[in-house]
Each structure stands twice: as C-alpha cells, then as structure tokens.
Design a protein around this nucleic acid. Structure first.
Lengths: 195, 195
DNA sequence: CAAACATACGGAACGTGGTTCCGGATGGCA
DNA sequence: TGCCATCCGGAACCACGTTCCGTATGTTTG
C-alpha cells in the first residue's frame, strides 16, 4: 500500500546497490540528527553525518518532509494500528480514545520540533502533513464514533480538528518544565466528555 | 511604565525629526504588511512599503520582535486591562475567564502568523514571548484564582501553561475552515470546570 | 547665515540554510 | 573488458536576516 520501494522492493526495477546502501545510511543519519538537533536540523548536517553529498539526500528524499515521513513511518503506523486494538481492549470507548491520544502525544513530544513541523504552513511540509492526516484521522474518527455512540462524548467533534488541536498543544513541550502538554490534552479530552 | 520614548516622549534627549517620522511610517507600514502577508513578512518588504532603507528598520527596531511588539502593544494592553473589568462585570469568575480567553483568541487568530511566532523557539522572538507573558500571565492568574476561589474550576491550573495552550491552539486557525480554534479552546475551558 | 557636529539613512555585503544542476564516477551487464 | 544507465558530490544560486560604514541631513552654535 505505502509503496516502500526502498529496502528489498521487488516491483519496478531494482535500484543500484550503492543507492540502496546510501538510502539506509541516510535514514540512520537523519534519525540520529533528528534526535540530536530536532527535525529542523540543517540538511547539510544530515549529509555530513551520513558522509554523503547534499545532492544525494535530495535524490532520495525530494523534500525534507519525505525524509521525516520515512524516518517516522514505522512509529506512525504503530500508532495507527494501536487504535482498533485499544478499542477492543479498553473498558470503554472513551478510555480507548484517551489512551490512544496519549500514545500520539507521547510520540510527538519526544520528537523535537516534529509538532512544529506538522503544523507549519510551509509548503515543503505538505507531504508530512498529508501523511499524518491520511493515516491518523480515520483512526481517530473511529474512536470518536465509538465513544459518541456509547454516549460518552459530545457527538459533534471532528477527528481532524481534534488531532490538529492535540498536535498544536504538543508544540514547545520539550525542555519546558512549565508547560505540560499532557495535562492540557487531558483537559481537552475531559472537556469532550458528556455530563 | 512601558517607556514609549517615541511619539511625543519628553524624557531623555529628543530624537531627530526625521527619525520620529520614520518610526511612525515604519509602524504603519509594518502593520499593513502584517495584515497583508502575516507577521513573518520579509523585513525588506516592510522597508520597501515604508520607502526606507533596511538599515533604518534595524535602527528603530533591533529585532523583528520589537517591531511586532510595537505594532500590537495597544491591543495587548487593551486585552490585559479587560481582565479585571470582565471580572467585575461578569456573573461568575468562570464566565469572566471564558470571555477573557475569547478576547485573547480573537486577537491571535486575526493576526496571521502571530500565534506561530509567539510559540517559536527562535531566539529572535524572545522579546515578543516575554512581553506577552509578562503582560498577560498575571491577568490570567487573577482570573484563574478568582474562579478557583469560587470553586468553579480545578485549583491547580497554572496561568502560564493555560495561556501557552490557548496560544498553541490558535496556530493555523486562519483560512482553515476545518479547524476552529475557538471550539477547541472552549473544550479546554470546559475541561477546566469542576463537576 | 554658515560652519561643525551629532544623528540618522541607505543599501551593499555577509552568513545561513534550502534547493538545483551537471560533470564525473561507478555499478551492472553483455 | 567495455558500455551505458544510474548515481554521486558539491559548487552555485536564491531568499532572508542582519551588520556595517560612507554619505546625507537635522540641529546647534558662533
């Protein structure tokens, strides 16, 4: 589905060996650079870290967003797949929703600058934005629907809006002891509740 | 208190006439540019609009943050002063808090890019950040205290955290019909409520 | 009124970071 | 081994913030 033509792709023509090697190296270098300096680390730094030229990055990942998506794809997929699982294993749909959102928040606040990039209106991040929305909004909608059907939350909440809100609340959450995104998100889900 | 040495300042030495004129022109040009292209409009554009050189901007406003603060100072002051007034005129402290936050949200969502700049960790925006915090956190704290004393909200909410949260929720709120910051902020204040 | 000085102006120039482009290198294959 | 498609490196270009200094102009003083 999500054409991962890298790695051991079999469809289309096989890429040259050095190209595949470089793609791997780049993903590792980017992941390390993101941890060290945030997702807005200069492209040149990633290239240097990987020991390749700048052009090589752009050939493999046409935009910075593609690189970010590639680095975090596994984790986003895991988050998306956790939705239905939580719905099945939690005591109530609302509990599942809260836990799932916690998962999302945990993911965002531990990736320096990712929440910022996600909400940026810079055209370069369009792909990133689209990927998160495409993958996570349906999951969130399913959880919201279940909770609404169970009469636990107000029925008029839009999944896209909620996810953006949560994402926004995660901005600036790292290294700021005075700002606890989790608490605010908790307030939000509490406000969602019907009473 | 907030030394506005421009305009008709009397303390210290009087600035040269052309300098005072330019400062006025720049404030007008910046305000217009912010409306037209957001607060992150290129400095050169503001200079061109004002018909002055780039150096002139930097002499009057050493950082972009200083310019933004100067442009919006009146509105921020008005918002700050509205706090006690609302507390006196509203039926309950919680109502006053909600109305005051609405005021703040209205201000932020109508200034393209201001919410983003406010939460940016860019060192250049330090002054902007500090000004908003200094001026608005005490007001918000007063409203929170009153509502907490009245037993209307949970007593453990920090004013700084709440303001940052609200500010974050305002990011990307303009020209996006799918994202209504006001509704999410409403959810937040609802979640604050004791029940 | 004019000289002399302080103050302010304009914009070239520099640093940084993203992105493009193309001459040269190199893996895959006959 | 030789050829060609593919890929690599990094110089070069663009956009933007910011600095710096030679020049211009308001202001003061003789």
């Amino acid at each position: 589905m999500v054409s991962t033509d890298s790695g051991s792709g079999s469809s289309a023509r096989r890429k040259r060996a050095d190209a595949r090697r470089n793609e791997e190296t780049l993903l590792d270098a980017a992941a390390a650079a993101f941890v060290a300096s945030g997702v807005d680390v200069p492209v040149r730094d990633i290239a240097a870290r990987a020991g390749v030229g700048i052009g090589t990055i752009y050939r493999h990942f046409p935009t910075r967003a593609d690189l970010i998506v590639a680095v975090y794809r596994h984790q986003v997929e895991a988050c998306a797949e956790a939705g239905p699982a939580l719905l099945a294993s939690s005591s109530t749909p609302h509990a599942a929703l809260v836990r799932w959102i916690d998962l999302f928040v945990d993911f965002l606040v531990t990736k320096h600058g990712l929440a910022e990039a996600l909400q940026s209106d810079d055209a370069a991040f369009e792909t990133l934005h689209a990927y998160f929305i495409d993958r996570l909004v349906p999951v969130c909608a399913q959880l919201l629907d279940a909770a609404a059907a169970a009469g636990e939350i107000r029925p008029d909440m839009d999944a896209y809006e909620l996810l953006r809100g949560v994402g926004n609340l995660c901005i600036g959450a790292d290294d700021n002891p005075r700002y606890d995104a989790r608490r605010l998100v908790g307030l939000l889900t509490e406000g969602l509740r019907l009473r």
